[in-house]
Amino acid sequence: MTNRLEGKRALITAAGQGIGRATAEMFIAEGAEVLATDRDTGLLEGLDCETMRLDVRDDTAVREGVARARPDILFNCAGFVHHGTVLDATDDEWDFAFELNVASMFRTIRAALPGMLERGGGSIINMSSAASSIIGAPDRFVYGTTKAAVIGLTKSVARDYIARGIRCNAICPGTVESPSWHDRVAALGEKLGSHEEALQAFVSRQPMGRVARAEEIAALATYLASDESAFTTGHAHVVDGGWSGQ
């Protein structure tokens, strides 16, 4: 490790597990001062940084978190994966997905941006997905729609503040091994009557023959947070093991 984030302050949402936690650990190892947040504070145990309970759907709590962190780096990682087609989707699922997957980023960026501008710069990193405007994934109607919106949000913020020291990028992973992914495998396994068959269904669509490790996505987030990516903004960075390139 080379202290690539030394002197920088970072706010991370959904830092309790999966990509969020792997990124928090990597940011810490690279010298950042991290405020790791999650709705479940128990998941934040063991992180060697300041932690805070944060429900990103609560605007007041978001503003409190931003005021506490004063971030140079904002990593929006909170989200939820809905399963099903347009005919399966309910109004409640649609509303919840946009609230958590998109509106939460609107809130955190709106809260963090003034301080970043005042301090002369910042890096905003939004979690999107390869299943978005990049590719259409089966049974991911609601999820893919929200993640396409995240890419549009990212490009808009990047364009508006490109000359004022603000960079805004999206990360678009393929399937990543995480607690939420294991839950989806288990749910499909119950439907199919076989956990192994469900696991194979996920892995078989990956050209590399495996799913990603959370640390592989965290490495990209670290690059986008660091000054190494100073000339990079407004892009959807695909890290999907070749899934969208088939």
Rank of each mutant, 00 (worst) to 15 (best):
N3W: 00
G7H: 07
G7R: 07
R9F: 11
A10M: 10
L11V: 09
A14P: 11
I19P: 04
R21G: 13
T23H: 01
L35A: 08
D38K: 00
G42Q: 03
G42V: 06
L44R: 04
L54C: 07
D55C: 09
D58P: 01
R63V: 12
G65P: 07
G65C: 11
A67K: 03
I73H: 00
L74G: 04
N76P: 01
N76T: 02
F80H: 05
H82N: 00
L87I: 14
D88V: 04
T90S: 14
D92G: 07
R107D: 10
I109V: 15
R110L: 12
G120K: 08
S123N: 14
I125P: 02
I125T: 08
I125L: 13
S129L: 03
A131R: 01
I134K: 04
I135F: 03
A137K: 04
Y143I: 04
A158D: 14
D160W: 14
A163T: 15
A163G: 06
R164G: 13
G165R: 01
C172L: 11
C172S: 08
T175S: 15
P179K: 06
W181A: 12
V185N: 02
A186C: 00
A187H: 05
L188N: 03
L188M: 14
L188C: 05
G193V: 10
E197K: 07
E197I: 03
A198Y: 02
F202R: 01
S204K: 09
P207V: 15
P207M: 14
A212W: 01
A218V: 11
A221D: 05
S229E: 10
A236W: 06
H237L: 15
V238E: 07
G242V: 14
G245Y: 13
G245N: 14
